[in-house]
Design a protein around this nucleic acid. Structure first.
Length: 201
DNA sequence: GTGCGGATGAACT
DNA sequence: GTTCATCCGCACT
């Protein structure tokens, strides 16, 4: 399947892109080992206007600078000192929008993902949740700021569009610190999919 | 230089 | 439901 083109990532509507990323396929190729899966859960982070975003208020630091790049690159950071979280940077240069990938359904390299997670059998928690899927796919800070049209981490267009009635929207997870913005329904997931991290109905 | 707390997950009670 | 692992980005002194 072809990689999603640069143009895909330039949309300034980050919620639209978070929806469009559902059903697409995320892959990594690390040390010759291919792993990947279908994106089933995302969250939109709307740049400088979004209190839950690292770039809220136009904050520009060494860490967040990647968010201001043209869409189509990775933003990986360490959360709670333990978990790496993977985001897709979107929108043209200067607009720090990003989509957090929160769940994928395994599609390639299952044995490798099990090994990375110290698991022996496929269970939903292999790749349900942003920290879990990053570990399964071998994503860490070494994959920060990578071109998503490159050879280490990329997203393929499988020509599948998830019908609107199969998608649910809900408030984002773990962003209580964002006050009123914590209530915005900017988390999207495929209803009923086992690899969605939390409530799904 | 110091201190706080986080876009989580797993193991407990 | 609660606890805790475990790091560093970031704001402030």
């Amino acid at each position: 399947m072809p990689k999603l083109p640069f143009s895909f990532y330039q949309d300034t509507d980050v919620n639209s892109l978070a929806l469009q990323l559902l059903g697409k396929q995320l892959f990594t190729l690390i040390d010759g080992r291919l792993t990947g899966g279908t994106i089933v859960e995302t969250e939109a982070y709307n740049g400088i206007e979004d209190k839950a975003s690292h770039a809220y208020g136009g904050r520009l630091t060494n860490r967040t600078s990647i968010m201001y790049q043209s869409g189509g690159v990775s933003y990986v950071y360490l959360c709670y000192g333990i978990h790496h979280l993977f985001n897709v940077v979107t929108a043209p240069e200067g607009i720090p929008h990003a989509v957090l990938i929160r769940g994928v359904e395994p599609a390639a390299g299952l044995d490798i993902m099990l090994e990375r997670r110290n698991m022996t059998a496929l269970k939903p928690n292999l790749t349900a949740g942003p920290g879990a899927l990053a570990k399964a796919l071998g994503i860490d800070k070494g994959l920060n700021a990578k071109d998503l049209l490159g050879e280490e981490i990329w997203i393929e267009d499988n020509r599948i569009t998830i019908a609107g009635q199969l998608v649910a929207a809900s408030p984002r997870v773990g962003v209580d610190y964002a006050g009123d913005h914590a209530l915005l329904p900017w988390r999207y997931y495929i209803k009923g999919n086992k690899f969605v991290s939390k409530p799904n109905s």
